[in-house]
Design a protein around this nucleic acid. Structure first.
Lengths: 356, 356
DNA sequence: ATTGCGACAGCAAACGATTGCAGTATAGGT
DNA sequence: ACCTATACTGCAATCGTTTGCTGTCGCAAT
């Protein structure tokens, strides 16, 4: 196992040429500058000695590191692994590797990580951490550091980003519910400071209006985070505010999961008494009781495309910023069904009655 | 935002000293070599200019990169994110960062990644990819490259590793089932080429014998991978081989999930007709239908300790290899219950009968 | 025969730090 | 007053590559 200790000098010596020449021969971009025969000789020597260039040394001279920084809120959130996987796969195709770190949505930590990575000469960043207004992103943009955002994006500037078409996704969810016969539909939105939270909310409102339905403010709430707990909290509020609601579109799957908990508390059966649809289609969400209807986002592709875009941006500093939208897809499972018939006493009203 | 371009020379000049002196002043290990007053001056200058050392340049000279390589089979497997998180958290405490890559359990790819990372001067590796006999690990050991294994370990050498106490975990599972009254207990093991697969299997056999029960070979099968599909396949085999089985201990949660699918096919109710217990307690497994009983491994801690150990190994090349075992914990949920009463016709035998 | 040019290849200076060695100045001992 | 030990600090090499510049050689054109 060649844990390389063979340097460029070694192969140069072995090939009987100057290290500079060897360098040029080895680098495809400069190979033309050296005689074909000598180039062959060098390549041969390199192969023979098992030469592998030292990227650190190269980086020192060239300011390139062939690594890029990936900042995500929390790897432990099932949303991110596929994205990271996509990033990594695309990156490796070009010989790049990823430096990964978790920010826990803490701006201070985020900035620190960003700087640490900058120090390490990463050539660019993929950020899954952007707020709609995000000073870090703006600073990076101003400094012309290559970045592309994934999943979320900013609104205060135009930049590279790869995101799902969130408004469209909400519309999918609403149409599905409307098609089932629901009219009193609530929304549990994610934090409005994230583009995902806001866009899905806006999509919800637009779709409701498009369907000639009222987007009742009392039936709309926002979680302070994309968590199960927040989903439960808001769900309770919505239920308390108006008992005519028969369906909920949640800003993401975790929020929807919180609804499940509340339904259980309240003795509500899903989907018989109330429907809920999530967003993301995270792994294993199909195994739940009941399997969650949701909007699928192509996470792996998001990651892959983000890396692709970043690579482009790195090789062409003048590439014009673009945000690519990936299409969401409706996944119907068992958490959504027709609304309860109001005529006969439903379990819902029975449950409400028994609570009185 | 200081995207550092200020070098050691700059701060030296600003402080009116030689770069060498500045270097010594800045480095806590060598600070004693320089006059306290000048040191202060240098520190001051550095702070003022916002100096941040260039780790690449440093690394070139010192052969240290403050980064370590993390090789996992597939980040998308929910087992790994918490481990990686633990690794990263511990690493960052010491200013290290992690280079992450997925091997997909492909030895060729694994080796390639290993070499790429070596080239990048990583100071050590954390491997979640070890087979019980693993040439890559052996080579690395022979070359005295610092490595520590997580989750799985090798058997052909003694090395640093952090794993769950797998045999003990299986015993927990078996005791639980025996306590419930089961006697005909089957086992769906993971691949025997992984230490986890083997140890859990051995723990199963030992526990059965310890309980005075027969570990019937017909009730034992092995998946070729830790996947739901393999779980289903083996589950079908076991069911076909002997219809007296009332409980299954699965080598991991995914394998157990496969059982769920087969139960559904066969019209078996869990836990009324048959119990199953998983291993790992992966995220969201508690949301399943029914919530899966399982053995919890402290994944985050495994990662954290692995990083800790690696850091130790790096700072002290003569540290003696050790494998630290973390204790598993029984998590009882709803997939395990008492065995069906053989007296009255159970759904199980009814189902079997109707199939005849 | 001289000049000019093209094609290589070598030289050496970077890149930004670290570090062994040597030099200088001060203090302290006799 | 001289010598030596001590305490710094500066010098310069070095880590492994890359790359602008210079030099050499052969060949063709005049």
């Amino acid at each position: 196992m060649a844990f390389t200790a063979v340097t460029l000098r070694d192969v140069a010596k072995h090939a009987g040429v100057h290290p500079g020449t060897a360098s040029r021969a080895l680098n495809s971009r400069t190979r033309a500058l050296v005689n074909e025969a000598t180039a062959k000789k060098v390549l041969e020597a390199a192969r023979e000695l098992g030469y592998r260039p030292n990227p650190i040394a190269r980086g020192l001279k060239t300011n390139r590191s062939e690594t890029i920084g990936v900042l995500i809120p929390d790897l432990t959130n099932p949303l991110f692994p596929p994205i990271v996987r996509g990033i990594e796969d695309r990156l490796r195709e070009e010989g790049y590797t990823a430096l990964l770190a978790n920010s826990d949505n803490d701006p201070t930590k985020e900035r620190l990580l960003f700087e640490t990575m900058s120090d390490r000469q990463v050539e660019g960043f993929i950020l899954a951490t952007a707020d709609r207004e995000d000073p870090l992103v703006e600073d990076a943009l101003a400094a012309r550091v290559p970045i592309v955002m994934v999943n979320r994006t900013i609104e205060t500037a135009i930049a590279f980003a790869v995101v799902g078409r969130d408004r469209g996704g909400s519309q999918l969810a609403v149409s599905h519910l409307v098609g089932l016969g629901h009219t009193r539909i609530g929304h549990i939105g994610g934090p409005e400071r994230f583009s995902t939270g806001k866009a899905r909310y806006e999509g919800f409102v637009a779709a409701m209006e498009g369907a000639g339905l009222e987007a009742d403010r009392r039936l709309i709430g926002f979680g302070e985070a994309f968590t199960e707990d927040e989903g439960a909290r808001v769900c309770r509020e919505l239920l308390a505010a108006d008992n005519s609601m028969t369906a909920i579109v949640a800003g993401n799957d975790l929020l929807a999961l919180g609804c499940y908990d509340v339904f259980a508390e309240e003795g509500l059966r899903c989907p018989e008494n109330i429907s809920v649809i999530g967003y993301n289609d995270m792994p294993f969400i199909d195994k739940l009781r009941p399997p969650l209807s949701t909007i699928r986002i192509p996470h792996y592709e998001i990651g892959w495309n983000a890396a692709d875009l970043l690579l482009l941006r790195i090789s062409d500093p003048d590439a014009s910023p673009r945000t690519v939208f990936l299409e969401p897809e409706l996944v119907v499972r068992a958490s959504t069904g027709p609304p309860p018939q109001p005529l006969s006493g439903t379990a819902r009203s029975a449950a409400a009655g028994s609570a009185t």
